[in-house]
C-alpha cells in the first residue's frame, strides 16, 4: 500500500488500474498489495533492484504469470474498466490488446513478412492479401524498420541485427493494434545507437499506445518515461512524475537506489 502523501499511484486518466495486486510463487510472496495506475498515451517506467518484483508486476498485466506453475495472482487489474484477472477473460485475446516486447529479441524463425503477418492472421484482423500487406508495411514503418527491410521481406527475421530484430518484435507487437505495450528491458541487449532508435520509437509510439517499460538503466527510465515507479522488496516504494523521482525523490530508499548508495 502506498502512502498517499508522498505518492501519486492514482492518476486522472488511467488506461490500466491495478489495486491490491499480490503475487506469490509456490507460496512465496513476491508482490504485496500493489496499487498503480498506468496512464493513457504515456510511458510508465518500473525501476528497482533485481528481484524487486517489477517484471513480475509487468507480467501480471497480460497474464503471462498464468503459465508459471504455482503462481497465484490476487487483487484487481482493469484495462479500460474491464477486469482482466477474471477467469472468463481469454488470455490470448488479452495479449492482443496488451502486447509484450522482451529483453532478448525473439523473432519467429520465419520471414520478416510472416513475423508481422502472424498476429493479424491468427486474430483475423485482416481480409485478403492487400490488407495484410498494408498492415505489414505500416507496422514496419511505425517501428522505423521499413526502409531497412523493404527489399528483403521474405528473408528470415533472425538474419537481422540485434537492434533490427528488437524493432521487428516491436513491429510485430503493434501489428495486432494493441492498447498497451509492455516492455521488459527492451534495450539491454542492444548497443547505444540501436538503443537510441528504440527509445525514439517508444517516444513516437506513446502517441498511440500506453507503454510500460521495465529497465535497469535509470538514464533510460529518465529519458523515455513520464512516470516512474520504484519497486523494492515487492512493494512500490514511490511513484511519481519521472522528473520529480530523478531530481527530488521523497523516499530515502528511492534516493539511495537512483544515486547508487543502495546498500
Amino acid at each position: 500500500m502506498l502512502d498517499s502523501e508522498t505518492n501519486s499511484a492514482t492518476i486522472a486518466d488511467p488506461k490500466v488500474v491495478c489495486r491490491d495486486v499480490s503475487v506469490s510463487y509456490s507460496g512465496k510472496q513476491a508482490l504485496f498489495d500493489i496499487d498503480l495506475d498506468i496512464g493513457i498515451h504515456q510511458v510508465t517506467s518500473l525501476i528497482g533492484p533485481s528481484g524487486c518484483g517489477k517484471s513480475t508486476f509487468l507480467r501480471c498485466m497480460n497474464r503471462m504469470n498464468d503459465v508459471i506453475d504455482g503462481c497465484v495472482v490476487t487483487g484487481s487489474i482493469s484495462v479500460d474498466g474491464v477486469e482482466i484477472l477474471d477467469d472468463e477473460i481469454d488470455a490470448v485475446q488479452l495479449r492482443r490488446r496488451v502486447g509484450m516486447v522482451f529483453q532478448k529479441p525473439n523473432p519467429f524463425p520465419k520471414s520478416i513478412y510472416d513475423n508481422i503477418a502472424y498476429g493479424p492472421r491468427i486474430h483475423g484482423l485482416v481480409r485478403g492479401k492487400d490488407e495484410l500487406d498494408e498492415v505489414v508495411q505500416t507496422s514496419l514503418e511505425r517501428a522505423g524498420l521499413w526502409e531497412e527491410v523493404k527489399d528483403r521481406l521474405l528473408q528470415p527475421g533472425t538474419g537481422l541485427s540485434g537492434g533490427q530484430q528488437q524493432r521487428l518484435c516491436i513491429a510485430r507487437a503493434i501489428a495486432v493494434r494493441p492498447d498497451v505495450i509492455l516492455m521488459d528491458e527492451p534495450c539491454s541487449a542492444l548497443d547505444p545507437i540501436a538503443t537510441a532508435r528504440v527509445e525514439e520509437l517508444i517516444d513516437e509510439l506513446k502517441r498511440s499506445y500506453s507503454i510500460v517499460i521495465v529497465t535497469h538503466s535509470m538514464q533510460q527510465a529518465a529519458r523515455v518515461s513520464q512516470r516512474t515507479a520504484f519497486f523494492h522488496l515487492g512493494i512500490v516504494v514511490e511513484v511519481g512524475e519521472t522528473e520529480q523521482i530523478f531530481t527530488n525523490p521523497r523516499d530515502e530508499r528511492t534516493q539511495g537506489y537512483i544515486t547508487g548508495r543502495y546498500g
Binding site: 531530481t247 527530488n248 534516493q255 544515486t259
Partner: peptide
C-alpha cells in the same frame, strides 16, 4: 557520472 537526485542537485 550522470548524477541523479541529491547528487545532481
Amino acid at each position: 557520472r550522470q548524477p541523479m537526485a541529491v547528487d545532481l542537485r
